[in-house]
Simulated scan of single mutants.
Amino acid sequence: MSLQSINRALVSHDLVQDLKWNADLRQEFEKDESSVLDRYDLTPAERTAIEERDFRTLYDLGFHPYLGAQFARILFANNKSGATSAVQHLLASIRQERVPDRSEASDA
């Protein structure tokens, strides 16, 4: 994963930026993720990776690493309480390991 391999055409970049800056959209995403994803012209691979929380695939598609960290925080609800759980999920996904549950991640 390098900055040269970033695919600037990925619509998932727009999704993450929108979620990052729009609290109403984040709330809607938490309640009905599928309907929010339907609004974005994601490739099937992007959508599946998002739904499965598969950051390794997103990065293989050319997802920007900075946005990956931001997205992990959004997905794993760590915007208020720190990023430990989000980072654990992100790293496990990249390494293609079992994702720790919340109690394991908070012990790290």
Results as ranks from 00 to 15, higher is better:
L15P: 05
E46P: 07
L37E: 13
T84W: 00
T43H: 05
E52G: 00
K20F: 13
R73A: 11
L91W: 12
A49W: 04
D41A: 09
A49L: 03
K80G: 06
T48P: 01
G82W: 13
V99D: 09
L37N: 10
S81M: 03
F76C: 02
A72Q: 07
D32L: 03
K20L: 11
I94C: 02
S35N: 15
Q96E: 15
Y40Q: 02
A23M: 07
R56L: 04
Y66L: 13
A83Y: 11
D107M: 09
P100N: 04
N22F: 05
S106R: 14
P65M: 02
R26N: 02
D101C: 05
R26T: 13
R56W: 09
D60K: 13
Q4E: 15
L75E: 14
T84I: 12
S5V: 09
E28R: 10
D60C: 06
F71H: 07
L75C: 02
V87S: 00
T48H: 04
K80C: 00
D54I: 10
Q17M: 13
S34V: 04
S93Q: 02
R8T: 15
D32R: 04
T48F: 07
S12K: 03
E30M: 12
A72G: 01
A77E: 11
I50T: 01
D38T: 03
I6K: 08
L91C: 06
V16N: 08
Y40H: 01
I74Q: 06
L15R: 10
L37T: 02
D107T: 10
E33Y: 00
Q27T: 14
I74T: 05
V36G: 00
T57S: 03
V16T: 14
A105T: 10
A77K: 13
D38S: 05
R73H: 01
E52A: 10
S106E: 15
E52D: 14
Y59K: 09
E33K: 15
W21N: 14
A45T: 06
S106H: 11
S34I: 07
L61C: 02
Q88V: 08
E46V: 01
L19I: 10
G68Y: 09
Q96K: 08
W21L: 14
V11D: 01
L90A: 10
I74A: 05
F63E: 00
I94V: 15
